[in-house]
Write a protein that binds this DNA or RNA. Structure first.
Lengths: 97, 97
DNA sequence: AATACATATCGATAATTATCTATGCGAGGT
DNA sequence: ACCTCGCATAGATAATTATCGATATGTATT
C-alpha cells in the first residue's frame, strides 16, 4: 500500500485533457496524431499528457515506424479497480478506540 | 460524459495525503482529529484535503457537536467505478477508419 | 457571557503541473 | 546523403495546487 504509487495510478484520471484522451482511446488504439486533432493543445502538450498516462500504467504506447499508437491497458484499469475495491472492503466501523 | 466532472471525481485519488486519508477511512468513519494525528500536516491543510475529498463525492462529512466525522461514500466509489467500467466497454479497434 | 475547543476560512507563499516555443531525434522517402 | 514528417525533450512561463500561520465561526462547558 504505497500511497505514492496509488496516487500515481490515478493521476491518469484527474486531468480534463487526459480524460478526453481516455474517452477517445476507449474506442480502440489510436495514433498520437489522431489524439492531437481532437484535443486542442499543442503537440508537446499532448506528448506530456501521454507520458503521464503511460507512467500511470493506464495507457500503453507502441511505436510503429514514425507513429506512436496508444491504447488503454487492461492491466492498468485492473490496478485502479483493485484500489477502489480495496476501499470497499469495510470492517465494522471502529470510531472510538 | 463531462470530462471536467469525471476529473473532479478522481481528484480524490491523485494526491498522496488524500490516499492516506482514504486508507484510514476504509476502516470506518473517523473524526477529523484522528486524521490529523495520522497525517503530519497542519489542521488547515487537512481541512483543505477533506474539502476536495467531499467535493469529489468520495467522502461524506457529518457534523456532530464540535466534531466532523468523515466516511467513505459508497455512491462516490460507484461513480468512480462506473467510469473505469465505461473504459472497459471496448468495441473492436478502429485505427484506420 | 466567558472560555475552551474543533474545524473552516483567509491570505500569503512554496511547490507542482500545464502549457508554450524552439529544438532534437529517428524513420522513411527522394 | 538530404529532406520531411511524427514525436519527444528542453527550457521558460503561466496556472494551479499544497501548505502554512493567523483568524473567524460555531459548539459545548463552566
Amino acid at each position: 500500500m504505497d500511497e505514492r504509487k496509488t496516487a500515481l495510478i490515478f493521476k491518469a484520471f484527474c486531468d480534463e485533457n487526459r480524460i478526453r484522451v481516455l474517452n477517445i482511446l476507449k474506442d480502440g488504439e489510436k495514433c498520437a496524431c489522431r489524439l492531437l486533432e481532437a484535443l486542442n493543445v499543442t503537440q508537446p502538450t499532448l506528448s506530456h499528457h501521454m507520458k503521464i498516462l503511460c507512467d500511470s500504467g493506464i495507457v500503453l504506447g507502441r511505436k510503429e515506424g514514425k507513429w506512436m499508437y496508444y491504447s488503454i491497458s487492461e492491466d492498468g484499469l485492473s490496478k485502479a479497480q483493485e484500489y477502489i475495491d480495496f476501499l470497499r472492503l469495510k470492517k465494522e466501523a471502529n470510531n472510538d478506540e
